[in-house]
């Protein structure tokens, strides 16, 4: 298997698998966040379950962190190798004549998403780890006895600039997914009679999911 990862095709296959995994995670994250729009109680219950269930915390979460780190590290490795494969640039290059902006700028949309993940971890993940594993409070409750998850979520969307930053990040996420979804399937060798349908589904996914996240952020900003 290590031989596969040392080859160009193996690396892009691994990149595609990590991308498909992250896209499944994104759908799950979106579904749970969307609950916050419809029902505070349901959102709190699901969040508490996800935040305390051992399988999620000690199995899925480490796999997810590995997947995120692997995807970014491999992305940078491939970018460096690819830049090295052309040491003199063209004086004139008409990239837009043959490829989409999204496909040519995955590294930049990826870096924007990486910066957003830093902000997102600062906002939610680090405080969560601090509460649960440093302070040792696994109750998920506020001093008034209510669940803290919905309260924490709304609190983060009070500041207009944070909401703007989140919305910009989701635009970059959409741009990344618009190429990344179909590209992941092509890298795994899945180019067949279902390809056109998958590309259509990928475009819908790339627009609906980020747009949904924008909607959730704006919803809480205007309803806090």
């Amino acid at each position: 298997m290590s031989g596969i990862l040392n080859s160009s095709i193996g690396r892009k296959f691994a990149m595609a698998l990590s991308a498909l995994f992250l896209m499944i995670f994104l759908l799950q994250h979106f579904t749970i966040n969307l609950l916050s729009v419809f029902s505070e109680d349901t959102f709190n219950s699901v969040s508490h379950f996800m935040g305390t269930f051992w399988l999620v915390q000690y199995v899925f979460q480490p796999i997810l962190i590995f997947g995120v780190i692997f995807h970014f590290v491999m992305g940078f490795v491939l970018e460096v190798k690819n830049r090295n494969a052309r040491q003199i640039s063209y004086a004139k290059n008409n990239g837009s004549a043959n490829s989409s902006w999204m496909s040519r700028n995955m590294i930049w949309s990826g870096l924007a998403i990486l910066a957003f993940i830093g902000l997102h971890f600062y906002d939610f993940w680090f405080p969560e780890i601090n509460t649960k594993f440093i302070q040792g409070d696994m109750s998920g409750l506020l001093p008034n006895g209510e669940y803290r998850y919905f309260e924490e979520l709304q609190h983060k969307f009070v500041d207009v600039w944070r909401v703007v930053l989140y919305c910009i990040a989701f635009v970059f996420l959409a741009l990344h997914l618009l190429h990344g979804f179909s590209s992941a399937f092509q890298s795994t060798g899945a180019n067949n009679k279902y390809t056109k349908g998958l590309q259509g589904f990928g475009k819908a996914y790339a627009i609906i999911i980020p747009l949904g996240f924008v909607f959730i952020a704006l919803f809480h900003y205007f309803n806090h």
């Binding site: 160009s8 892009k12 690819n82 494969a85 043959n98 490829s99 496909s103 040519r104 890298s187």
Partner: peptide
Amino acid sequence: VKQMDEEGFGNCTNTGA
């Protein structure tokens, strides 16, 4: 594929160009 990699070509990112 081994020879292709040894020659120093880059990795495909499916731009379709």
